Amino acid sequence: MTHALPFSRPYPGWFTPFARTLLERTWRGRHNLIPLSLALGTILLSPSLAQAPRLTTPEEVARVEVIRRAMPAVVKISGIVRDPQTGNEGPTNGSGFFYSSNRIITNYHVVQDLRDISVELFDGRSFPGTVFAVDKGIDIAILSIQGATAPAQLTFGSSQNLPTGMGLVVIGSPFGQRNLASYGILSGVGPTTAQKNDLDPEIGSEIGDLLFTDARIMQGNSGGPVLDLQGRVVGVANSILGDISGIGGIGVAIPGDLVKQSVQDLERFGVPQRGGLRATLVDLTDLDPLLLGKVGLLSTKGAMVEKVEPGGPAAQAGLRPAQRDQRGKLIGLGDIILAVNGKAMRNAGEITQTLARFRPGDKVKLTIWRNGRNLEVTVTMMARR
Protein backbone atom coordinates (compact mmCIF):
# COMPACT_ATOMS: atom_id res chain seq x y z
CA MET A 1 0.00 0.00 0.00
CA THR A 2 1.30 3.44 -0.92
CA HIS A 3 0.85 6.12 1.74
CA ALA A 4 0.65 9.82 1.04
CA LEU A 5 3.47 11.95 2.32
CA PRO A 6 2.72 14.12 5.36
CA PHE A 7 2.75 17.17 3.06
CA SER A 8 1.66 17.64 -0.50
CA ARG A 9 3.81 18.63 -3.45
CA PRO A 10 5.39 21.00 -4.25
CA TYR A 11 7.91 20.21 -1.54
CA PRO A 12 9.39 22.93 0.69
CA GLY A 13 11.94 24.94 -1.23
CA TRP A 14 14.84 23.87 0.97
CA PHE A 15 14.60 20.18 0.07
CA THR A 16 17.45 18.92 -2.07
CA PRO A 17 16.45 16.45 -4.82
CA PHE A 18 18.29 13.71 -2.92
CA ALA A 19 16.47 14.49 0.33
CA ARG A 20 13.09 14.53 -1.39
CA THR A 21 13.68 11.11 -2.98
CA LEU A 22 15.02 9.67 0.26
CA LEU A 23 12.03 10.84 2.29
CA GLU A 24 9.54 9.64 -0.34
CA ARG A 25 11.00 6.16 -0.51
CA THR A 26 11.28 5.79 3.25
CA TRP A 27 7.78 7.11 4.00
CA ARG A 28 6.16 4.84 1.42
CA GLY A 29 7.79 1.83 3.01
CA ARG A 30 9.05 0.54 -0.31
CA HIS A 31 12.75 0.84 0.59
CA ASN A 32 13.03 0.02 4.30
CA LEU A 33 16.79 -0.15 4.55
CA ILE A 34 16.92 3.42 5.83
CA PRO A 35 14.69 4.31 8.77
CA LEU A 36 12.61 7.48 8.62
CA SER A 37 14.58 9.05 11.45
CA LEU A 38 17.80 8.69 9.46
CA ALA A 39 16.13 10.17 6.39
CA LEU A 40 14.97 13.20 8.36
CA GLY A 41 18.44 13.54 9.87
CA THR A 42 20.00 13.55 6.40
CA ILE A 43 17.66 16.33 5.32
CA LEU A 44 18.37 18.41 8.44
CA LEU A 45 22.12 18.07 7.84
CA SER A 46 21.81 19.05 4.17
CA PRO A 47 24.05 22.00 3.21
CA SER A 48 21.12 23.59 1.43
CA LEU A 49 19.12 23.73 4.66
CA ALA A 50 21.71 25.98 6.27
CA GLN A 51 20.70 28.55 3.69
CA ALA A 52 16.98 27.84 3.99
CA PRO A 53 16.07 31.27 5.41
CA ARG A 54 17.52 32.87 2.27
CA LEU A 55 16.20 30.39 -0.30
CA THR A 56 12.53 31.04 -0.79
CA THR A 57 11.70 29.53 -4.21
CA PRO A 58 12.41 26.25 -6.01
CA GLU A 59 14.27 28.24 -8.67
CA GLU A 60 16.67 29.61 -6.05
CA VAL A 61 17.31 26.14 -4.68
CA ALA A 62 17.99 24.78 -8.17
CA ARG A 63 20.28 27.70 -9.02
CA VAL A 64 22.35 27.36 -5.86
CA GLU A 65 22.64 23.60 -6.30
CA VAL A 66 23.76 23.93 -9.94
CA ILE A 67 26.45 26.47 -9.02
CA ARG A 68 27.63 24.40 -6.05
CA ARG A 69 28.03 21.26 -8.12
CA ALA A 70 29.45 22.89 -11.28
CA MET A 71 31.92 25.34 -9.75
CA PRO A 72 34.71 22.76 -9.08
CA ALA A 73 34.76 21.84 -12.79
CA VAL A 74 35.37 25.43 -13.95
CA VAL A 75 38.91 26.77 -14.35
CA LYS A 76 40.73 30.02 -14.96
CA ILE A 77 43.10 30.01 -17.95
CA SER A 78 46.02 32.46 -17.93
CA GLY A 79 49.05 33.19 -20.05
CA ILE A 80 51.07 35.79 -21.91
CA VAL A 81 49.91 37.22 -25.20
CA ARG A 82 51.23 39.82 -27.60
CA ASP A 83 48.92 42.63 -28.60
CA PRO A 84 48.88 42.54 -32.43
CA GLN A 85 48.14 46.26 -32.61
CA THR A 86 50.77 47.59 -30.20
CA GLY A 87 53.27 44.73 -30.17
CA ASN A 88 53.38 44.82 -26.38
CA GLU A 89 53.19 41.61 -24.35
CA GLY A 90 51.12 41.16 -21.22
CA PRO A 91 49.03 38.76 -19.16
CA THR A 92 45.52 37.76 -20.14
CA ASN A 93 42.97 35.32 -18.87
CA GLY A 94 39.82 33.46 -19.80
CA SER A 95 37.72 30.58 -18.52
CA GLY A 96 37.15 26.92 -19.31
CA PHE A 97 35.70 23.73 -17.87
CA PHE A 98 36.57 20.06 -17.55
CA TYR A 99 34.63 17.66 -19.75
CA SER A 100 36.96 14.73 -19.05
CA SER A 101 39.54 13.84 -16.42
CA ASN A 102 42.35 15.89 -17.97
CA ARG A 103 40.87 17.95 -20.80
CA ILE A 104 39.24 21.35 -20.81
CA ILE A 105 36.99 23.21 -23.23
CA THR A 106 37.56 26.91 -23.79
CA ASN A 107 37.36 29.46 -26.62
CA TYR A 108 39.91 29.46 -29.41
CA HIS A 109 40.36 33.20 -29.01
CA VAL A 110 41.35 32.64 -25.36
CA VAL A 111 44.36 30.51 -26.29
CA GLN A 112 45.17 32.02 -29.69
CA ASP A 113 48.89 32.92 -29.63
CA LEU A 114 48.88 32.35 -25.85
CA ARG A 115 52.14 31.13 -24.32
CA ASP A 116 53.02 29.90 -20.83
CA ILE A 117 49.47 28.60 -20.42
CA SER A 118 48.44 28.07 -16.81
CA VAL A 119 45.23 26.42 -15.62
CA GLU A 120 44.03 27.43 -12.15
CA LEU A 121 41.63 25.03 -10.47
CA PHE A 122 38.71 25.76 -8.18
CA ASP A 123 40.90 25.35 -5.09
CA GLY A 124 43.57 27.78 -6.33
CA ARG A 125 46.18 25.25 -7.48
CA SER A 126 47.75 25.95 -10.88
CA PHE A 127 49.05 23.52 -13.48
CA PRO A 128 50.54 23.92 -16.96
CA GLY A 129 48.23 23.42 -19.92
CA THR A 130 48.83 22.64 -23.57
CA VAL A 131 46.59 23.07 -26.61
CA PHE A 132 45.33 19.66 -27.74
CA ALA A 133 43.18 20.76 -30.70
CA VAL A 134 41.35 23.81 -32.00
CA ASP A 135 38.22 24.55 -34.01
CA LYS A 136 38.67 28.09 -35.24
CA GLY A 137 35.43 28.04 -37.20
CA ILE A 138 33.29 27.93 -34.06
CA ASP A 139 35.89 29.52 -31.71
CA ILE A 140 36.50 26.41 -29.61
CA ALA A 141 39.73 24.87 -28.28
CA ILE A 142 40.63 21.87 -26.14
CA LEU A 143 43.39 22.06 -23.54
CA SER A 144 45.17 19.17 -21.88
CA ILE A 145 46.21 19.73 -18.27
CA GLN A 146 49.42 18.26 -16.94
CA GLY A 147 49.84 16.91 -13.41
CA ALA A 148 46.25 17.08 -12.19
CA THR A 149 42.93 15.28 -12.49
CA ALA A 150 39.61 17.06 -12.81
CA PRO A 151 37.92 17.58 -9.41
CA ALA A 152 34.61 17.50 -11.29
CA GLN A 153 33.37 17.25 -14.88
CA LEU A 154 30.48 18.85 -16.72
CA THR A 155 28.22 17.11 -19.23
CA PHE A 156 26.30 18.53 -22.17
CA GLY A 157 22.57 18.92 -22.49
CA SER A 158 20.77 19.65 -25.74
CA SER A 159 20.71 23.23 -26.99
CA GLN A 160 17.91 22.46 -29.44
CA ASN A 161 14.54 24.16 -28.99
CA LEU A 162 15.50 26.04 -25.82
CA PRO A 163 12.59 28.23 -24.68
CA THR A 164 13.17 31.96 -24.40
CA GLY A 165 12.97 32.94 -20.75
CA MET A 166 14.52 29.78 -19.29
CA GLY A 167 17.08 30.29 -16.52
CA LEU A 168 20.81 30.17 -17.35
CA VAL A 169 23.86 30.11 -15.07
CA VAL A 170 27.25 31.43 -16.24
CA ILE A 171 30.42 30.53 -14.30
CA GLY A 172 33.94 31.78 -14.96
CA SER A 173 36.69 34.25 -14.16
CA PRO A 174 35.50 37.73 -15.21
CA PHE A 175 38.34 40.27 -15.07
CA GLY A 176 40.57 37.54 -13.62
CA GLN A 177 38.47 36.93 -10.51
CA ARG A 178 37.90 33.18 -10.51
CA ASN A 179 34.89 31.24 -9.22
CA LEU A 180 32.22 33.83 -9.95
CA ALA A 181 28.70 33.06 -11.17
CA SER A 182 25.95 35.10 -12.77
CA TYR A 183 22.35 34.28 -13.54
CA GLY A 184 19.83 35.38 -16.12
CA ILE A 185 17.48 34.15 -18.78
CA LEU A 186 17.82 32.96 -22.33
CA SER A 187 17.05 36.18 -24.18
CA GLY A 188 16.84 34.63 -27.62
CA VAL A 189 18.43 32.34 -30.21
CA GLY A 190 19.52 33.37 -33.69
CA PRO A 191 22.26 34.81 -35.87
CA THR A 192 24.11 37.94 -34.90
CA THR A 193 24.35 41.07 -36.99
CA ALA A 194 27.39 42.26 -35.04
CA GLN A 195 30.64 42.85 -36.87
CA LYS A 196 33.07 39.92 -36.90
CA ASN A 197 36.57 39.95 -35.45
CA ASP A 198 38.49 42.45 -37.58
CA LEU A 199 41.84 40.87 -36.70
CA ASP A 200 40.78 37.37 -37.74
CA PRO A 201 37.33 37.19 -39.41
CA GLU A 202 37.53 33.38 -39.66
CA ILE A 203 37.12 33.01 -35.89
CA GLY A 204 33.55 31.91 -35.31
CA SER A 205 32.68 32.25 -39.00
CA GLU A 206 30.94 28.85 -39.10
CA ILE A 207 28.54 29.50 -36.25
CA GLY A 208 24.97 29.95 -37.39
CA ASP A 209 22.56 30.59 -34.55
CA LEU A 210 23.89 31.83 -31.22
CA LEU A 211 22.45 31.91 -27.70
CA PHE A 212 21.82 35.36 -26.21
CA THR A 213 21.44 35.91 -22.47
CA ASP A 214 21.15 38.75 -19.99
CA ALA A 215 23.30 36.74 -17.55
CA ARG A 216 26.50 38.73 -17.06
CA ILE A 217 29.19 37.61 -19.50
CA MET A 218 32.19 39.87 -19.07
CA GLN A 219 35.82 40.03 -20.14
CA GLY A 220 37.43 36.86 -18.79
CA ASN A 221 34.23 34.79 -18.93
CA SER A 222 35.09 33.61 -22.45
CA GLY A 223 35.21 29.81 -22.61
CA GLY A 224 33.22 29.24 -19.44
CA PRO A 225 30.08 27.09 -19.26
CA VAL A 226 26.51 28.29 -19.69
CA LEU A 227 24.29 25.89 -17.73
CA ASP A 228 20.61 25.13 -17.50
CA LEU A 229 18.97 24.60 -14.09
CA GLN A 230 19.73 20.89 -14.26
CA GLY A 231 23.45 21.65 -14.39
CA ARG A 232 23.94 20.66 -18.02
CA VAL A 233 26.10 22.66 -20.44
CA VAL A 234 23.86 24.20 -23.09
CA GLY A 235 26.36 26.79 -24.28
CA VAL A 236 29.90 28.15 -24.01
CA ALA A 237 30.31 31.83 -23.12
CA ASN A 238 31.86 33.64 -26.06
CA SER A 239 31.44 37.40 -26.27
CA ILE A 240 29.46 40.50 -25.36
CA LEU A 241 27.23 42.66 -27.50
CA GLY A 242 27.60 46.18 -26.16
CA ASP A 243 29.70 47.48 -23.28
CA ILE A 244 32.68 45.21 -22.56
CA SER A 245 31.93 45.56 -18.82
CA GLY A 246 28.69 43.71 -19.39
CA ILE A 247 26.66 46.68 -18.18
CA GLY A 248 23.91 47.30 -20.66
CA GLY A 249 25.30 44.60 -22.94
CA ILE A 250 24.00 41.16 -23.84
CA GLY A 251 25.92 37.93 -23.44
CA VAL A 252 26.59 35.66 -26.41
CA ALA A 253 27.21 31.91 -26.18
CA ILE A 254 28.03 29.14 -28.65
CA PRO A 255 25.27 26.48 -28.66
CA GLY A 256 26.26 23.36 -26.74
CA ASP A 257 25.25 20.90 -29.47
CA LEU A 258 27.70 22.54 -31.87
CA VAL A 259 30.48 22.42 -29.27
CA LYS A 260 29.76 18.81 -28.32
CA GLN A 261 29.94 17.65 -31.94
CA SER A 262 33.15 19.61 -32.47
CA VAL A 263 34.78 18.11 -29.37
CA GLN A 264 33.88 14.59 -30.50
CA ASP A 265 35.42 15.27 -33.92
CA LEU A 266 38.54 16.83 -32.44
CA GLU A 267 39.00 13.89 -30.09
CA ARG A 268 38.63 11.38 -32.95
CA PHE A 269 40.18 13.14 -35.94
CA GLY A 270 42.14 16.05 -34.51
CA VAL A 271 40.41 18.49 -36.88
CA PRO A 272 36.82 19.74 -37.34
CA GLN A 273 34.54 17.67 -39.55
CA ARG A 274 32.03 20.26 -40.74
CA GLY A 275 31.44 20.60 -44.45
CA GLY A 276 33.00 23.30 -46.58
CA LEU A 277 33.70 24.23 -50.19
CA ARG A 278 37.40 24.99 -49.66
CA ALA A 279 36.86 28.15 -51.62
CA THR A 280 37.04 31.87 -50.82
CA LEU A 281 33.73 33.72 -51.12
CA VAL A 282 33.09 37.45 -51.48
CA ASP A 283 29.81 39.24 -50.72
CA LEU A 284 28.20 40.82 -53.76
CA THR A 285 27.81 44.02 -51.72
CA ASP A 286 31.62 44.27 -51.76
CA LEU A 287 31.69 44.35 -55.58
CA ASP A 288 31.19 47.30 -57.91
CA PRO A 289 27.42 47.61 -58.45
CA LEU A 290 28.04 49.04 -61.91
CA LEU A 291 29.90 45.88 -62.89
CA LEU A 292 27.11 43.70 -61.56
CA GLY A 293 24.55 45.74 -63.45
CA LYS A 294 26.46 45.39 -66.72
CA VAL A 295 26.30 41.60 -66.55
CA GLY A 296 22.63 41.59 -65.58
CA LEU A 297 22.86 40.98 -61.83
CA LEU A 298 20.34 43.29 -60.19
CA SER A 299 20.31 41.68 -56.73
CA THR A 300 23.19 41.73 -54.23
CA LYS A 301 22.05 38.55 -52.48
CA GLY A 302 24.50 35.68 -52.73
CA ALA A 303 28.30 35.51 -52.92
CA MET A 304 30.96 35.25 -55.62
CA VAL A 305 33.55 32.48 -55.73
CA GLU A 306 36.81 34.40 -55.45
CA LYS A 307 39.35 31.54 -55.20
CA VAL A 308 39.12 27.77 -55.46
CA GLU A 309 41.45 25.40 -53.63
CA PRO A 310 42.85 22.72 -55.96
CA GLY A 311 41.35 19.31 -55.26
CA GLY A 312 38.65 20.71 -52.97
CA PRO A 313 34.87 20.28 -53.31
CA ALA A 314 34.46 23.51 -55.27
CA ALA A 315 37.20 22.55 -57.72
CA GLN A 316 35.86 19.01 -58.15
CA ALA A 317 32.38 20.40 -58.86
CA GLY A 318 33.79 22.73 -61.52
CA LEU A 319 33.08 26.03 -59.77
CA ARG A 320 34.86 28.88 -61.49
CA PRO A 321 36.85 31.50 -59.54
CA ALA A 322 37.08 35.22 -60.26
CA GLN A 323 39.65 36.61 -62.65
CA ARG A 324 41.81 39.56 -61.63
CA ASP A 325 44.66 41.40 -63.27
CA GLN A 326 48.12 41.88 -61.76
CA ARG A 327 46.88 44.90 -59.83
CA GLY A 328 44.03 42.92 -58.31
CA LYS A 329 41.34 44.56 -60.40
CA LEU A 330 38.38 42.30 -61.10
CA ILE A 331 38.21 41.56 -64.82
CA GLY A 332 35.93 38.51 -64.76
CA LEU A 333 33.26 37.41 -62.29
CA GLY A 334 33.52 34.05 -60.60
CA ASP A 335 30.45 31.86 -60.16
CA ILE A 336 27.78 33.48 -57.99
CA ILE A 337 26.24 31.15 -55.39
CA LEU A 338 22.58 32.03 -55.00
CA ALA A 339 21.12 29.09 -53.04
CA VAL A 340 22.04 25.95 -51.08
CA ASN A 341 19.66 23.00 -51.49
CA GLY A 342 17.06 25.41 -52.82
CA LYS A 343 17.33 27.89 -49.94
CA ALA A 344 18.28 31.40 -51.04
CA MET A 345 21.49 32.74 -49.49
CA ARG A 346 22.00 36.35 -48.47
CA ASN A 347 25.78 36.51 -48.25
CA ALA A 348 29.07 34.60 -47.92
CA GLY A 349 28.66 34.19 -44.17
CA GLU A 350 25.28 32.50 -44.52
CA ILE A 351 26.64 30.17 -47.21
CA THR A 352 29.58 29.18 -44.98
CA GLN A 353 27.35 28.59 -41.95
CA THR A 354 24.82 26.59 -43.97
CA LEU A 355 27.47 24.33 -45.49
CA ALA A 356 29.06 23.83 -42.06
CA ARG A 357 25.94 21.92 -40.97
CA PHE A 358 26.81 19.14 -43.39
CA ARG A 359 29.36 16.39 -42.83
CA PRO A 360 32.15 15.17 -45.11
CA GLY A 361 30.69 13.01 -47.87
CA ASP A 362 27.30 14.74 -47.90
CA LYS A 363 26.12 15.91 -51.32
CA VAL A 364 24.80 19.47 -51.51
CA LYS A 365 23.08 21.15 -54.45
CA LEU A 366 24.16 24.71 -55.21
CA THR A 367 22.27 27.13 -57.43
CA ILE A 368 24.81 29.32 -59.15
CA TRP A 369 24.73 32.19 -61.64
CA ARG A 370 27.18 31.94 -64.53
CA ASN A 371 27.27 33.86 -67.80
CA GLY A 372 23.79 35.24 -67.42
CA ARG A 373 21.92 32.08 -66.45
CA ASN A 374 21.25 29.89 -63.42
CA LEU A 375 22.79 26.43 -63.11
CA GLU A 376 22.49 23.56 -60.62
CA VAL A 377 25.77 22.10 -59.33
CA THR A 378 26.17 19.16 -56.92
CA VAL A 379 29.08 19.44 -54.50
CA THR A 380 30.41 16.64 -52.27
CA MET A 381 31.46 18.06 -48.90
CA MET A 382 34.92 17.75 -47.44
CA ALA A 383 36.00 18.80 -43.96
CA ARG A 384 37.08 22.42 -43.74
CA ARG A 385 40.65 23.25 -42.86
Rank of each mutant, 00 (worst) to 15 (best):
A344P: 11
D362S: 09
L290S: 13
A4C: 09
G220T: 02
G167V: 10
P35C: 07
F18H: 13
L143F: 09
V134Y: 06
I77P: 01
S126E: 13
H3A: 15
Q177K: 13
F97Q: 06
V74P: 04
G223C: 00
R103V: 10
G256Q: 03
Q323N: 11
Q146A: 12
V340I: 15
S159A: 00
D123I: 03
G176T: 02
P225I: 01
Q316E: 08
V75Y: 00
K260Q: 13
S159N: 05
L284D: 00
L44P: 10
K76L: 14
L291Y: 04
S159L: 04
K363G: 01
S173Y: 08
L114Q: 03
D335Y: 03
I34C: 05
L210W: 15
H31D: 13
T155M: 15
I247Q: 14
G167S: 12
N347A: 09
I140P: 00
R346Q: 14
R178N: 09
L227C: 04
G246S: 00
N341C: 10
L291M: 13
D83G: 06
E202T: 15
F122W: 15
T86W: 05
I80V: 07
A181R: 01
P272K: 07
I368M: 07
Q353L: 10
T213P: 04
R82T: 11
G94E: 07
A383M: 07
G223R: 04
R346T: 12
V134H: 05
F132N: 07
V259M: 00
L287F: 02
G242Q: 05
G251V: 03
Q160P: 12
S8G: 12
A237Q: 10
T285D: 09
G96T: 05
P10M: 02
A62N: 06
G332R: 02
A181C: 10
G165W: 11
N197F: 15
F175W: 11
G94D: 05
R125C: 10
R359L: 01
D265E: 12
R125K: 13
I203S: 00
T300C: 10
V308A: 07
S101Y: 15
